[in-house]
Design a protein around this nucleic acid. Structure first.
Length: 280
DNA sequence: CTGCAATGCTAAG
DNA sequence: TTAGCCTTGCAGG
């Protein structure tokens, strides 16, 4: 679901399904109808993601900017015989002119038609994205090393780093044994580099599989003889939404707290406090 | 069935 | 700091 890997995966799916084809663009729900008419019947040139932002490019330098927010969804279907009637509130529907593929957007926070300049503004405001090969982790490091804000907040700040959401945040902090409230300025550069390198691998895997898996092989359900996780996000994780359950590595009870309105999860033993008085 | 929380973010107050 | 977006899956009655 919508952390950066989801948007990059969608960009690939959209490009595969529609690039180079004439596409009918509509808004069964109506809220995107006016903009849709401006690109309806144009050639879709490709789709690209930066962090959690998706841009679908049409002939004439016009882009549909999509942000899924918390529960938005974009379903891409290819190789269909027939395009079904829309179900629910479909904000935007793309249909290949030959009718063999369609995509439905629902519940998105943002769906707007923008110029190349407007797209560039979004990209410029974003921090480096671990999924993009052109990303420069030093840009993020320069923000982190100068900030007394908790690393748990910095990782979710899309102007510091683009694409990391609540699951990757919790999990990468766990994997690097960092307490979420530790100030950014107390990290060593080597720690940041290791964290970044890990995100590059984890998130690329997320693009490939469409889910967030962060446990190492020795902690997999098979290796540990435990049942696989079964809930809506599907992947195998160490601490995300596991509060009150035993840590897979040390057995301590996973803890939770709220930081800036978002749920934090961490293991008090594997992610020791950075100071004696910090939250445990 | 009803209610609520959720991988996010913006704008209003 | 809070409401809103308006979907989905789960818990509880």
């Amino acid at each position: 679901m919508p952390e950066g890997h989801t948007l990059h995966r969608l960009a690939l799916e959209l490009t595969d399904a529609f690039a180079g084809s004439v596409v009918r663009v509509g808004s069964p729900q109506g809220r995107f109808a006016e903009s849709a008419s401006l690109v309806d019947g144009q050639v879709l040139e490709g789709a690209e993601a930066w962090g959690k932002h998706l841009f679908i490019g049409f002939a004439g330098e016009r882009f549909v900017h999509v942000h899924l927010g918390l529960y938005g969804k974009l379903d891409v279907r290819t190789g269909v015989e027939e395009v079904p009637d829309p179900v629910g509130q479909v904000r935007m529907r793309l249909v290949r002119a030959d009718g063999t593929a369609y995509a439905d957007l629902r519940g998105a926070t943002t769906c707007e038609l923008v110029t190349a300049e407007q797209r560039d503004l979004v990209v410029e405001r974003s921090g480096p994205d671990p999924i993009r090969p052109d990303a420069d982790p030093d840009r993020a490091w320069q923000r982190i090393r100068r900030s007394r804000a908790p690393i748990g907040g910095l990782l979710m700040d899309q102007t510091v780093l683009a694409g990391v959401g609540n699951v990757y945040r919790a999990e990468v902090l766990y994997r690097h044994r960092m307490h979420p409230l530790r100030p950014g300025s107390t990290l060593r550069q080597s720690q940041w580099q290791a964290t970044w390198d890990d995100l590059v691998v984890l998130m690329a895997e997320g693009v490939r599989t469409g889910r967030i898996d962060t446990v190492r092989p020795e902690h997999s359900p098979e290796a540990m003889g435990r049942p696989p996780r079964k809930d809506d996000h599907g992947g195998e994780v160490y601490v995300y939404r596991r509060h009150g359950q035993p840590c897979l590595v040390c057995g301590a009870k996973v803890r939770t707290d709220v930081l800036q309105g978002r749920n934090l999860f961490w293991c008090p033993r594997c992610q020791p406090t950075f100071r004696s008085r910090a939250v445990q």
